[in-house]
Design a binder for these strands. Sequence first.
DNA 1: TTGTAGGCGTTATCAA
DNA 2: TTGATAACGCCTACAA
Lengths: 334, 334
Amino acid sequence: MVTIKDIAREVGVSPSTVSRALSDSPLISQATKEQVHAVAKRLGYERNELARALVKGTSEAIGLVVPDITNPFFADIARGVGEVAHAFGYGVILCNTAESLERGLNYIRLLRRKRVDGLIITNATRNDPVAKQLAGSKTPFILVSRLWEGIETSYVIGDDHYGARQAVEHLISLGHKRIGFIGGPAAVQSSNDRMQTYREVLQEHGLTPQEEWIRYADFTQRAGREAGRRMLSLTVRPTAIFAANDVTALGVLEAAEDLGISVPDDLSIVGYDDISYASLPRIQLTTVAQPAFEMGKIATDWLISTIVGRHQRLLHRVLKPHLVVRCTTSKPST
Amino acid sequence: MVTIKDIAREVGVSPSTVSRALSDSPLISQATKEQVHAVAKRLGYERNELARALVKGTSEAIGLVVPDITNPFFADIARGVGEVAHAFGYGVILCNTAESLERGLNYIRLLRRKRVDGLIITNATRNDPVAKQLAGSKTPFILVSRLWEGIETSYVIGDDHYGARQAVEHLISLGHKRIGFIGGPAAVQSSNDRMQTYREVLQEHGLTPQEEWIRYADFTQRAGREAGRRMLSLTVRPTAIFAANDVTALGVLEAAEDLGISVPDDLSIVGYDDISYASLPRIQLTTVAQPAFEMGKIATDWLISTIVGRHQRLLHRVLKPHLVVRCTTSKPST
DNA sequence: TTGTAGGCGTTATCAA
DNA sequence: TTGATAACGCCTACAA
């Protein structure tokens, strides 16, 4: 690899002059700048960002931790993050935890060892051991979509209570009385909030769900399918299911198919997120839409502003989701 | 941030001793090791990988460039890459080019400046200016799914000719004579190979497609939908369409819906990749399956072996895809 | 406008 | 078994 020393030797100046010339310092004459750039190009010089980061104390990289990159919701967040990160010249180190708490821990440690300038965390869970550790550190970070509890942080989330309310009230207004819920891991705040609101809304309407109508999956299609299959095999089964995310909802759709239950005639399904596959003609999933791409962008924008020191306030952004009624919900059959 | 010097001072030894103790050198006494580790833990020491990389000449990070992270095919590759990379203690820097050649170029430059130890490239295109540059460098890299032409590299790809043949012969065996093709960007090798084979197979069966039955989209759902809409609005329209990837195929499915054309009765559709959404009950897309996750794993495995110098041979891996017949294909209506 | 020198946090070499 | 010392490649006062 060619270094500034090589260029310096070639041009006949000192390494510092080369360094300054390459970073376009006003102290350097036009003539030398041109020479330096020419030689740099000829030699194929690429600045060593590692060395630069070491001395400048900033790596121009941010870490992004996601629980499942194959979930389009997180893929979209990742896209948003990449978009603005790269616009500011920052790199993005992506870590996929597969919903494993342990991996999440390891990745965050790895990212901090790599001295990323900031972190975007989308896999926050309750009692996350990393929470306090990170909160007590200097590394700026921001939570997206999922929250820790009892810890002051910046975040960009959707209003899960509001969204869940839209979903459940929609089902109730259609006339459903037996409404089930399939959530994500119990330690995930957003899933819990949706569940809690689900319970509340039912109660407000004088409805009490059986305990078997409430299940926890892990936000994957497979788990959604299994949970759905179990729930739909009950002797008294729900006429509608609210799934805590679209991927799970699609799993439930599969389960219904498996059991020969027709949607929406015999079962209504509402998802959450509005991933692009939810709107496919054959799917037409009724769901609660969240602006994933936007969330990634907002978070990254804030993070980088914080890194470069333009501000240091916390950011609390709660986006209102909205219900998109499509074709997986209808009146219950009588 | 706490450094080895801080630990050294605290313990009362030299920095080099601390360094050795932390990397578990056999030269250090058990007693000091324990002391050092204790203090390191107490102080919350995290090794600075930047500094380490600088002196060791290896960053323990690999770069991954994908054309579209929201395409589950690439998300799955990314998952595979992450899986084995992290198993070996490597970080993954993800770059999403959104099918832009210019971005691809910038990202690869960025990654090289960050001194990644190797690259996994899934966005290769014909006449990629980065190709020769990279081929002439010391950084090991491997292409996945998409190839450059005329350049000796390592790669893990699917057999596109074989896959496309399965798809088109399937349609022909069903009795289709008017078969269309919707590909990705013309500069993408895999898309081209599928197209070429599509032409060949038709020819072998004495069929000649009209030129309007061949369209290039950009591997997105939206473009697939538009191209599909145009093709299906022709006065003489194909009775079957082979799309160069599933995302495009889903777009075509939408287009058919838009125009009130029923699938598979009035139009058969075959996709490529077998992303998880292709097998949804309501979708049941007939498609050519590729093991994306596996491809990511194989490539990364090879890359890291090369990095650590276990070998330096090129890897040429061509995986045979297989046709999965589902419900979007049937005999043409008469 | 340019050069010198010191340092960023590690690791590696050579002595002790 | 441990300690100096010199790198790694770059940036930045401070001097010239």
